[in-house]
Amino acid sequence: MTVIKKLLIVDDSAFMRKLIGDFFVDVPNIEVIGTARNGQDALEKIKALKPDVVTLDVEMPQLNGLEALKLIMVDCPTPVVMLSSTTKAGAEITVEAMANGAVDFIAKPSGTISLDLHKIKDELVHKVIQATNVSVTKLRKPATLSKAANTFFNKDISTKEITTPSKPLERSVINTNNWNLHGKKKLVLIGTSTGGPRALQEVITKIPQNIMAPILIVQHMPAGFTKSLATRLDNLSEITVKEAENGDILQSGVAYIAPGGYHMKLQKVGMSVGIKLDNIEAPRGGHRPAVDVMYESASKLEEYDKLAVIMTGMGSDGTKGLKILKTTGNVKAISESANTCVVYGMPKAAFETGLVDNVEDVDDIAQTIMKYIP
């Protein structure tokens, strides 16, 4: 029997509501059951109509998308896909929305009223369908440091907030299989996609400042949003988090997030290792940055042991790169468990290779990383 999923469209523009609704006219199994003109209207419609998924505009009067999302997740938890402009304010709100339970987001191609919204039609339809399969219980789970997250954009932070992990980070010995015997430098490589911003907040904010390894992160995000993600994580973490720049020299205690639209590669710079950003090589599996590209590039660094971490996300990005890493060096791999993944795609594909050493709930990934880093 065919199951029809119900969609509610929320946007303050009648034109945009109509345009988005038209995208789903011929989509099997998705029925637009209503529209809402602002956040308050959305809350009332969600309670009355009980949709399976909501598209929610970020910038609206009366009750904006972020404020509405927080109330939705408390009063009537529902999978939400945010629609955002690429302005700095829009990007900041979107990143915070991801930390507060939104499944995913779409960047409008040309601002609040995008006459060319058809450019992202296929992506929007795909993400809405994907969101209907997400368990609401995982979205409701309180994010680490949610109090700090909720106040972050409402205050002027002049110094880095030092956060306290929810549990002690033990450096106990696990089965490292000679991992540390030869004393090579360590490199942490994290790949994630749908649900990633929230998962990264859970992991990165628990890493201590004195970690003796650089951390490279590929989060599938378009240009304009990775900078806001890096800024947010930097202000919530002990370690330094930055959007990677071409020529950055890797330093321990620093996390580098690949900018949207660029593959992140590594290259030798004298006795050091630097970051090379590439917007010429084609996307891999539709992604630029791609986890596979980062892993493949890192596999060429013989002087480093690598710790590969694959977290929540759709598809299989990272799996091919993991196979190359494992055949070219001393590598350990951690995948996020199905228990906590918003989408158990990328970690599942990695696990099925048989090359994953640890499967962990997102809450425990930071602790496992620190068990591998001496």
Rank of each mutant, 00 (worst) to 15 (best):
T2L: 12
K6T: 11
L7A: 11
L8V: 09
K18W: 00
D22G: 11
R37S: 12
Q40I: 14
Q40P: 00
A42S: 04
A42W: 07
K45L: 06
P61G: 07
L66M: 12
L69W: 09
D75T: 08
P79D: 02
K88G: 00
A97Q: 00
D104N: 08
S110V: 01
H126F: 13
V128Q: 09
A131Q: 06
A131E: 07
T132G: 02
L145E: 14
T151E: 14
T151L: 09
F153T: 14
N154C: 05
K155Q: 15
K160Q: 11
K167W: 03
K167C: 03
P168N: 03
L169T: 10
S172V: 11
T176D: 15
N177Q: 11
N180W: 07
L181R: 13
T205H: 06
I207G: 05
P208K: 00
I217F: 08
V218F: 06
P222C: 12
F225H: 08
R232F: 07
L233T: 11
I239D: 08
T240F: 04
E243C: 14
Q251D: 12
Y256K: 08
I257M: 09
A258R: 00
G260K: 05
D278T: 08
N279I: 05
A282E: 15
P283I: 01
H287L: 01
R288L: 06
V291E: 03
V293D: 07
Y295S: 04
A298V: 07
K300V: 09
K300W: 01
Y304M: 04
L325E: 10
T328E: 15
V331P: 13
S337D: 04
A338W: 00
N339L: 05
V343T: 02
G345K: 04
M346C: 11
K348N: 03
E352V: 03
L355V: 01
E360T: 01
D361C: 02
D361R: 00
